[in-house]
Design a binder for these strands. Structure first.
Ligand SMILES: [Mn+2]
Ligand SMILES: [Mn+2]
Ligand SMILES: [Mn+2]
Ligand SMILES: [Mn+2]
Lengths: 225, 225
DNA sequence: AATTATTTTTAGATAAGCCTAAATTCTTAT
DNA sequence: ATAAGAATTTAGGCTTATCTAAAAATAATT
């Protein structure tokens, strides 16, 4: 049932997965190259190979998308990545900005038994430390509504359920301001000039975030009561 | 301080480590090739490379041993392997015959922080599920006396503290007979004809083991009381 | 519609890790 | 001491995953 892919092939599948996820049109060679920090020529080579294996549907010069089988494998990889990130934070006490690089390695360890036992050990988590959904063993996501903090109006309350980017600089900034998944965020005011927002965190500390930052914070609105 | 080696280079270091451990003389090309299921020619290639990096001391046609730095890296690898095996058994509920292959992959994940946190999470175990000593962060082993069951006399009691081989067939055989690390083993009688031994396990079940099997079971003698 | 710019593919190389077969060196037996 | 045998190294190739530079195709501009 399961084909054995190299870690490199898996990384390409994941790159295409991410690209397909965030744009609906076919993933371009350059997009994939940028994501993997490799050359366009290398991407073309790999697309031929993955196409040969029926893991992607590749149209020369026009882009690529995952086949059903490719999608299944990419989802399994995302599952492993997010389970390992959860393990690193929940069990080993890592902070959310430290786990991505380690999970990038752990996700390529081959053993279905291992993934399933890890899932059980973590008590079948639905979301990873960054708030991203963890696919179940049969590839199903538990989705939840997430809107950008920038879309809230003054006076509205919300809970942080996700972040758009996972880079260390951004997450460190959030740490410094005691912002992490689960905190409540109340919109106090918005600047008409630069759209920056004054936010009350956990009904305690007040901070000022730029419009750009607010776009990268994904929240669930709380019904006023 | 830490050089970045490929998984392949690490595996060669470990092979040399094992060979050096079990023979005192230099490791031969063929021994390493057999251990890694590769060709002698490939071993020679790699010895040149590792020698260049000062990780091994290699004498053409005469054999190879680890340098001090090579030894340090090999020990770190053994540490990772055995910590992961312990994790798989203690935390994920794997059986001791299932963990080796997975640990072979996990041991190559690069992150010192990860290893140290794993060690802490497991509460600094001294021995892995096969009874082998786990080196500490500074490379020290906690050794303990281990003699083969075949060397005991009739009437002597002992506790199983290790096994000489880790292959699935052998471990499965032990499982079937409820033999695992920590069980008590009493010598009931020995055959003069084929040296097979009647053993009482956990003061409960009685089994007959061949001389060959008894040589592969490492025990600690219990002082009679 | 034609030209220019951008993107993508192809061509040709390189490095790691592996192989088989041939040459070399070491070991053992006569 | 020499020849036969075994072990090891070298030579030459192969595959995967890279790269740069050149060629081809598509997209954008005038
Ligand atoms: Mn991640
Ligand atoms: Mn994540
Ligand atoms: Mn092992
Ligand atoms: Mn072990």
């Amino acid at each position: 049932m399961d084909i054995d892919l190299t870690a490199t092939e898996e990384n390409y599948l994941k790159a295409i997965y991410k690209a397909n996820e965030s744009s609906s049109s076919l993933a371009s060679t350059n997009t994939i190259a940028r994501y993997l920090s490799t050359s366009a020529a290398s991407v073309t080579d790999m697309m031929k190979k993955l196409s040969q294996k029926n893991l992607v549907i590749y149209q020369k010069y026009h882009g690529v998308k995952l086949s059903q089988e490719g999608s299944r494998l990419a989802t399994a990889l995302v599952r492993k990545h997010r389970l390992w990130e959860t393990f690193l934070v929940e069990k080993l006490g890592f902070s959310w900005e430290e786990v991505h690089d380690i999970a990038e390695q752990l996700e390529h360890v081959r053993s279905n038994e291992l993934v399933d036992r890890l899932d059980q050990f973590l008590d079948y988590p639905k979301y990873d430390p960054h708030g991203d959904p963890i696919p179940s063993a049969d590839g199903k996501f538990t989705l939840r509504e997430r809107i950008a903090l920038s879309n809230l109006s003054i006076g509205e309350s919300s809970i942080l359920v996700g972040v758009k980017h996972h880079d260390k600089v951004f997450l460190d900034y959030l740490n410094q301001n005691r912002i992490n998944i689960g905190v409540t965020m109340n919109i106090l005011s918005k600047s008409l000039y630069d759209h920056s927002i004054r936010v009350l965190i956990e009904n305690e500390t007040e901070i000022l975030v730029t419009d750009e930052t607010a776009k990268n914070l994904l929240v669930r609105k709380l019904s006023a009561d």
